[in-house]
Design a protein around this nucleic acid. Structure first.
Lengths: 345, 345
DNA sequence: ACGGCTGTCGAGAGCGCTCTCACCTCCCCG
DNA sequence: CGGGGAGGTGAGAGCGCTCTCGACAGCCGT
């Protein structure tokens, strides 16, 4: 069943090259302090034998694993299935790969899984963790702090138990929201509504705050709570139209919500963007490009977020990983957003 | 910087429980052949010390890692960002977690990465691999065979270098396509067109073959090649309308393609489903539910596919992982698809 | 010409675990 | 009542690697 092809060891390479294990080890790990002819001999022996270091043996003594856990909490189908995490994972993967680190993926649902993740991280199987913890009431951040593993969070962590200096990377949700609303204002709209996201997530709170920054004096009835889903968008849009039939623009907390809102607007005979301008958030391509009309929205560079998270973590794990271009470390890093104009606003 | 909290070792637990290392090891790994009172003493010592086994040390001697690599080849933005992989990952993750295995994610783009993945797998860092290799010309499967790691493929592998018994899990693309076309026939449609997917992928080939199974006599001009993208769907739809203005139904190779086709049909003034019925494939929710009209399509249970892949692999790695319900092993497993009726057909 | 210094290399001691094997009970059967 | 066997336990030998430390060369300055 299993082929017992015993892979060559350091010992074997050493014998073949006619040097000691220590020397082979030095060469394999960078070759500093070994004279050129020897380096060459060892390299050839490695090549000929097809030697690959045994990571387990190495970890046993170095206590490093060159592996990072990516924890994605509560991937409910709707949330998890959007392109968001896929892109973020890609960014993370690229950066980790560039520094020869492995990506261990931990998906959780429910409390039991949280405990499992906590145990895993505390078990010292990985050097660090990148954590996406969406909800404010999430127990995960606490468990992770308890595990004592260097961690970078994706998205501003919202819990309030006094972990002020958590390192995180986030999009400029608030600034993006301001840009969206200002765009609508620039279009001459005055009765601008906002459908929020699920307010147990910091991104939804920040986007709503951005809306309020610009529309401080707005009619409070123009803000309705949604939940980041199309169905929530539909419900909220109906409520808005009932309450304020005179509205002339909507800022939806994300593209899915905007898609729902668009459907209701069409159903009620409002023309977009002529009667009501609509703007979304995320620039989730398969949605934003497919709506009718295509959605004007706020784009965030998801992949870059992932890459940056990984970079911050690697830097903490080993300062040598720092690029020259890296700025001084700060607890939170916020990435800019950009307005993408399509037809809906 | 790093807190040198030396974690307790087996030795420490043994000392505390007043037994030997061997006994602690036995208890930690199942406790067979140890008398009850000792088991209890050891358990308590483990608890009190917060002992967690050092996986590296364990792997060093057992040569097992309880880790599985998931390789996703060529995640071009468009492909990777769809919900497909996310769901599959979730299925895989659930199954692996249930059997205490870790998921190491390897994303690749381009040839260099393939070599890296090959080296990683050959390096014996994981016990097995789950591989998604989309394209027929992909070099990855060869590299993986060379690495000698037990592997299960996601989707029917299409390369033809004589690896007939590769284990894989796939959806019933052909059967699903037949069901889609038969549905259109049942609607009384006679001039049924097909927009294929990218034909360098087996799923696209199989879906086209399913179409042909039912429409053996069809006008060959009714089949146009697409590429699984909305833009490809638009282009293909235009071509179809130009060539065969009398068509009354379209089977698109996936939902994204169908969405593009729908746009062109609307633009050309054809009513869906009255003039032209449209059916997709995948039931990619954010798309299928958002189109106008909502898309009738073929659903595949993506998450179950992932779970099944993991289960097959685990069973190969260790027969004890087999559930009682598992059928006799066969090289390929094909999951059923179901028709989801919405408004477009 | 000599003591020290820098630079290269090898010997050897573990890292924390599993697993074989020998030993020791204790029970059962003749 | 003794011998054999079964079952429970511990001692010890590694798994493949890194890393410290000592040995030894070659070089400098005085």
């Amino acid at each position: 069943m299993t082929e017992a092809v015993t892979r060559p060891t350091l010992e074997a390479v050493a014998a073949r090259a006619g040097v000691s294990r220590a020397t082979v080890s030095r060469v394999v790990n960078g070759g500093d302090g070994v004279r050129e002819p020897l380096v060459e001999r060892v390299r050839r022996a490695v090549e000929e034998l097809g030697y690959v270091p045994n990571q387990a043996a190495r970890s046993l003594v170095t206590r490093r694993h060159d592996a990072v856990a990516v924890v994605i909490a509560e991937p409910e189908t709707r949330v998890f299935a959007d392109p968001f995490f896929a892109l973020q994972l890609r960014g993370i993967s690229k950066e980790l790969t560039a520094h020869d680190n492995q990506l261990v993926l931990l998906l959780t649902e429910g409390r039991d899984d949280h405990a499992r993740v906590g145990r895993y991280l505390a078990g010292g199987h990985v050097d660090g963790a990148l954590v996406f913890s969406l909800h404010l009431d999430d127990a995960l951040p606490g468990l992770i702090r308890g595990a004592g593993v260097p961690t970078v969070f994706g998205g501003r962590p919202g819990w309030s138990d006094g972990t002020p200096r958590a390192v995180y990377v986030d999009s400029d949700n608030r600034g993006g929201a301001r840009a969206a609303v200002r765009h609508l204002v620039g279009l001459g709209r005055t009765r601008i509504a906002h459908i929020t996201g699920a307010l147990d997530q910091t991104s939804a709170v920040d986007r709503r705050d951005g809306f309020r920054d610009v529309m401080a004096e707005a009619d409070p009835r123009l803000v309705v709570e949604g939940d980041f889903t199309p169905a929530g968008g539909e419900r909220a849009m109906r409520e808005l139209l009932d309450r304020c039939p005179d509205l002339d623009a909507v800022f939806a907390a994300n593209d899915l919500t905007a898609a729902g809102a668009l459907r209701v607007l069409r159903e009620r005979g409002r023309r977009v963007p002529d009667d009501v301008a609509v703007i979304g958030f995320d620039d989730m391509l398969p949605v934003a490009e497919q709506t009718d009309p295509p959605l004007t929205t706020i784009r965030q560079d998801i992949e870059e977020m992932g890459r940056l998270m990984a970079r911050l973590l690697l830097r903490r794990l080993d300062p040598r990983n720092a690029d020259d271009t890296d700025a001084a470390p700060s607890p939170g890093v916020v990435l800019p957003t950009t307005l993408v104009r399509r037809a809906s606003a």
